[in-house]
Amino acid sequence: HHHHHGSGALAALHAEGPLAGLPVTRSDARVLIFNEWEERKKSDPWLRLDMSDKAIFRRYPHLR
């Protein structure tokens, strides 16, 4: 159930192989992290948004 927010940013994801479903670039990863943060913020208003490279690598090590 993907609803768009204002920016309408869509992340490019790997379609197949071992990385299927994972973001292709760091900016794609940022979109995913932001979208998930927006969702989680509803139940956790104090949740901090962390889109640093460090956060991205921790989450998606293949982007190193």
Rank of each mutant, 00 (worst) to 15 (best):
H1R: 05
H1G: 13
H1K: 10
H1N: 11
H2S: 08
H2N: 12
H2K: 11
H3I: 08
H3G: 13
H3Q: 10
H4R: 10
G6N: 13
G6F: 11
G6H: 11
G6Y: 07
G6S: 12
G6L: 15
S7Q: 10
S7D: 11
S7H: 11
G8D: 10
G8E: 12
A9C: 09
A9I: 14
A9V: 13
A9R: 03
L10P: 14
L10I: 15
A11C: 07
A11K: 04
A11V: 10
A11T: 03
A11P: 12
A12P: 03
A12Q: 12
A12H: 14
L13D: 03
L13Q: 05
H14P: 02
H14D: 02
H14E: 03
A15T: 11
A15F: 08
A15P: 11
A15N: 13
A15Y: 11
E16T: 09
E16W: 13
E16H: 10
E16C: 09
E16A: 05
G17A: 02
G17Y: 03
G17F: 04
P18N: 09
P18Q: 06
P18E: 08
P18S: 09
P18W: 04
P18A: 09
L19R: 03
L19D: 04
A20F: 12
A20H: 09
A20K: 15
A20N: 07
G21Q: 05
G21D: 05
G21P: 02
G21Y: 04
G21F: 06
L22R: 02
L22T: 04
L22H: 04
L22G: 02
P23W: 01
P23I: 01
P23L: 00
P23M: 01
P23C: 01
P23Y: 00
V24S: 03
V24P: 01
V24N: 02
V24H: 04
V24I: 08
T25N: 08
T25S: 08
T25P: 00
T25K: 06
T25Y: 06
T25V: 02
R26F: 14
S27G: 15
D28Q: 02
D28L: 01
D28E: 04
D28T: 02
D28C: 06
A29K: 01
A29W: 00
A29M: 00
A29E: 01
R30I: 13
R30Y: 15
R30K: 12
R30T: 04
R30M: 13
V31Q: 10
V31G: 04
V31D: 06
V31W: 13
L32N: 02
L32H: 02
I33P: 00
I33T: 02
I33R: 00
I33F: 05
I33C: 02
F34S: 05
F34H: 08
F34I: 09
N35G: 08
N35W: 14
N35C: 09
N35V: 12
E36Q: 08
E36F: 07
E36M: 06
E36K: 04
E36V: 04
E36R: 04
W37H: 06
W37C: 01
W37V: 02
E38L: 15
E39I: 11
E39W: 05
E39L: 11
E39R: 10
R40D: 08
R40Q: 09
K41T: 09
K41H: 10
K41Y: 10
K41N: 15
K41V: 13
K42P: 07
K42N: 06
K42F: 07
S43A: 12
S43R: 12
S43H: 12
S43F: 12
D44F: 09
D44P: 04
D44A: 09
D44Y: 09
D44Q: 12
P45R: 10
P45V: 05
P45S: 06
W46M: 14
W46N: 15
W46H: 09
W46A: 15
L47P: 04
L47F: 11
L47I: 14
R48P: 15
R48V: 14
R48Y: 05
R48A: 09
R48G: 07
R48D: 09
L49H: 02
L49Q: 03
D50G: 02
M51G: 02
M51P: 02
M51W: 10
M51H: 05
M51Y: 06
M51T: 10
S52L: 01
S52W: 01
S52A: 03
S52E: 02
S52N: 03
S52V: 02
D53R: 09
D53K: 08
D53V: 10
D53C: 06
K54D: 15
K54V: 07
K54A: 11
K54E: 15
K54M: 10
A55L: 11
I56F: 01
F57M: 13
F57W: 05
F57E: 13
F57Y: 12
F57V: 08
R58H: 14
R58K: 13
R58P: 01
R58Q: 15
R59C: 05
R59N: 06
R59A: 11
R59V: 14
Y60A: 01
Y60K: 00
Y60V: 00
Y60I: 00
Y60E: 00
P61L: 01
P61F: 03
P61T: 01
P61H: 02
H62P: 00
H62L: 01
H62C: 01
H62M: 01
L63A: 00
L63E: 00
L63M: 02
L63D: 00
R64M: 11
R64D: 10
R64N: 13
R64P: 05
